[in-house]
C-alpha cells in the first residue's frame, strides 16, 4: 500500500514537474537559449502568489499575479540579458553564465526580502483524506493533474492550430527561412519566453499550497526541468512533459527503497545515464552538439 501511496504522490509531483519542464522545453526548443533562470520564474510566481494570499487576495487574483510575475521575468530576461548577448556573440556558455548570475542574484534577493526557509499557504484543498484503506489523497491531487492536462492540451492545440504556434515551431527548425518569410524572430522569441515562463506559474502556485516554497526552490525546479528536457529529447514538448512526470514518480517511488535525501540524486542518476547512453533522449533526434 505504501507503494501505491508513493506512486500517487509521485504523479502529483510529476504533473507539476511536467508543466515547468514543458515551459523550459518550449523556450529552449524555439530559441535555442538555455534559459537557466527558468526556475526563477517559478520562484517569483510562487512568492507573488504567497504575498497576494497573505494580503487577503482571492486565489484567482493571486494566481494571476503569479502568472504575471513569471511572464514579466521571462520577457525581461529575453530583452535585457539574452538579446544583448546574442547580438555580439552567441556562445551558449556566455548565455548560461549570465542566466546563472541572474538566478543567484534573484534567489538571494528573495531570501533577504521574503525571509529564508519554507513558507506555504494553508488551504482546505491540501488536506488529505483517506480515499481507500491506507491511501490518503488531498483534493489538490486532482487539481494538479487536471491543470497539467488542460494546459498541456491547450499548448499543443496552440502550437499546431494557430498561426503563431506554427511560426514558433518553424523558428525551432529554421530561423533563417522564417525570416525569409517576413516573420519577426524577435517577436516570436518573446512569445516563446512569455508562454514558457507562464507555464511555470501554475506549478508554483500549487507547490505553494502543498509542500511550500523556499528561496532556493527555483534551483531545484530548474535542474529538474533541464533534466526532463534532456531525458525527453530536446525539441519535444511531449518528451519533456513525460520525462518530468517520470522523474517525479521516480523520485517518489525511490523512497520505498532509499531514504529521502537520495530522492534528488535519483533524478540526476537518470539524467546522467541518459546523457551517456542515449543523449538524444526519448523522442529527440540524434544531436550531440
Amino acid at each position: 500500500m505504501l507503494f501505491l501511496q508513493l506512486l500517487l504522490q509521485g504523479i502529483q509531483t510529476g504533473a507539476l514537474y511536467a508543466l515547468t519542464a514543458a515551459g523550459f522545453a518550449l523556450i529552449f526548443g524555439a530559441t535555442r537559449i538555455f534559459h537557466f533562470a527558468h526556475g526563477i520564474s517559478f520562484t517569483l510566481a510562487g512568492y507573488a502568489f504567497l504575498f497576494a494570499w497573505n494580503a487577503g487576495w482571492p486565489w484567482w487574483a493571486g494566481s494571476l499575479a503569479g502568472v504575471l510575475a513569471a511572464t514579466l521575468f521571462g520577457l525581461a530576461m529575453e530583452r535585457v540579458v539574452y538579446r544583448p548577448i546574442q547580438r555580439h556573440e552567441g556562445s551558449f556558455f556566455t548565455v548560461f553564465v549570465a542566466a546563472f548570475g541572474v538566478a543567484v542574484v534573484v534567489q538571494n534577493l528573495v531570501g533577504m526580502l521574503a525571509g529564508r526557509g519554507f513558507a506555504s499557504v494553508d488551504t482546505p484543498l491540501s488536506r488529505a483524506t483517506e480515499v481507500m484503506p491506507e491511501i490518503f489523497l488531498a483534493p489538490i491531487f486532482w487539481i494538479a493533474i487536471g491543470v497539467a492536462v488542460v494546459l498541456f492540451v491547450a499548448l499543443s492545440a496552440f502550437l499546431t492550430r494557430t498561426h503563431a504556434g506554427v511560426a514558433l515551431r518553424a523558428l525551432a527548425q529554421n530561423p533563417d527561412l522564417l525570416r525569409a518569410y517576413g516573420l519577426s524572430s524577435n517577436r516570436l522569441s518573446m512569445l516563446a519566453f512569455a508562454l514558457g515562463s507562464a507555464m511555470a506559474a501554475p506549478a508554483a502556485v500549487l507547490t505553494a499550497m502543498t509542500t511550500g516554497l523556499n528561496e532556493a526552490i527555483g534551483h531545484h525546479v530548474m535542474l529538474i526541468s533541464m533534466a526532463a528536457t534532456i531525458v525527453g529529447g530536446v525539441g519535444s514538448l511531449r518528451g519533456a512533459a513525460l520525462a518530468g512526470l517520470m522523474l517525479g514518480v521516480a523520485e517518489s517511488v525511490a523512497l520505498q527503497f532509499v531514504d529521502t535525501q537520495w530522492a534528488e540524486a535519483v533524478s540526476f542518476l537518470v539524467l546522467f545515464a541518459f546523457i551517456i547512453f542515449r543523449p538524444s533522449g526519448f523522442f529527440g533526434v540524434v544531436q550531440t552538439r
Binding site: 529552449f28 551558449f92 556558455f93 548560461f96 533541464m226 546522467f272 546523457i275 551517456i276 543523449p279 550531440t288
Partner: peptide, 10 residues
C-alpha cells in the same frame, strides 16, 4: 559523448 548544454547538464 556530448558538448555544450548537454555537458553542463551532465
Amino acid at each position: 559523448r556530448v558538448r555544450g548544454e548537454y555537458f553542463v547538464a551532465a
